[in-house]
């Protein structure tokens, strides 16, 4: 997957490229609007991450330029201003998502993956699995090692999210937004407690542990590599 990053702030740009590369993407970095437009038009990218304030050509114009050239890849905007007008303008111009600086890299990564997955068919299955954990979407039942586990509706939704995106580190803000529809920075403690309760039900009495806390980043559900 190829990602174009257009960001004029040197450190941010470098770290974004490094972070995305290490997450398994091919990331190219342009530091000015015109360079970004040139790369975006000539290269074949699956996604573009654009800063709004750019030298030479701002993010909005850059997006218009890309669309005018028939480039339809999803675009995620980064901005220091979290003004409503910016958001509206970006979405009107065809931006797909929006992140306000300062943001957590885990959040960016999660959004990038969401955008890249968009438009692709959902796993056409009624059952999500990880190791010996089974989640039956039709009957809303969870079974681990053959033992039925009772979950509340929100716990079920949380586990479904973790399973659908297994292997990805999900930041707390993304979890709050996807499971509880809380789209603002809330007490992150809440997610920790909710996660602890879920783990008590599906992990505490079983081995191996499936849900792992990634400190400072979020949570990930994955089958541990066999040693």
């Amino acid at each position: 997957m190829k990602i174009l990053i257009v960001e004029d702030e040197p450190k941010t740009g470098d770290y974004l490229r490094q972070g995305l590369s290490e997450a398994g993407f091919v990331a190219d970095l342009a530091r000015t609007g015109p360079d970004g437009l040139h790369l975006g038009v000539t290269g074949d990218y699956d996604l573009a991450i654009l800063d709004v304030m750019l030298p030479g050509l701002d993010g909005w114009r850059l997006l218009q330029g890309l669309r005018a050239e028939g480039k339809q890849m999803p675009v995620l905007f980064l901005t220091a201003r979290d003004q409503l007008e910016d958001r509206v303008k970006g979405l009107e111009l065809g931006a797909d998502d929006y992140l306000v600086k300062p943001f957590a890299f885990a959040e960016l990564l999660a959004r990038v993956r969401t955008l890249l997955r968009r438009g692709k068919p959902k796993e056409a299955t009624d059952t999500l699995r990880a190791g010996d954990l089974e989640l039956d979407l039709m009957r809303r039942r969870v079974v681990r090692s053959g033992r039925r586990i009772d979950l509340t509706a929100k716990e079920f939704a949380l586990l479904e999210l973790l399973l659908r995106r297994r292997g990805e580190v999900l930041p707390r803000s993304l979890i709050a937004s996807q499971v509880w529809d809380m789209n603002f920075d809330s007490d992150t403690n809440v997610i920790e407690v909710a996660m602890r309760r879920l783990r008590a039900k599906i992990d505490d009495d079983f081995e191996p542990k499936l849900i792992r806390t990634v400190r400072g980043m979020g949570y990930v559900l994955e089958e541990p590599e066999p040693d």
């Binding site: 509880w180 407690v193 602890r196």
Partner: peptide
């Protein structure tokens, strides 16, 4: 009600 669901685990703890 939505917020209660969100805070459910925290309140319980």
């Amino acid at each position: 009600a939505g917020l209660f669901e969100f805070y459910d685990a925290l309140a319980e703890s």
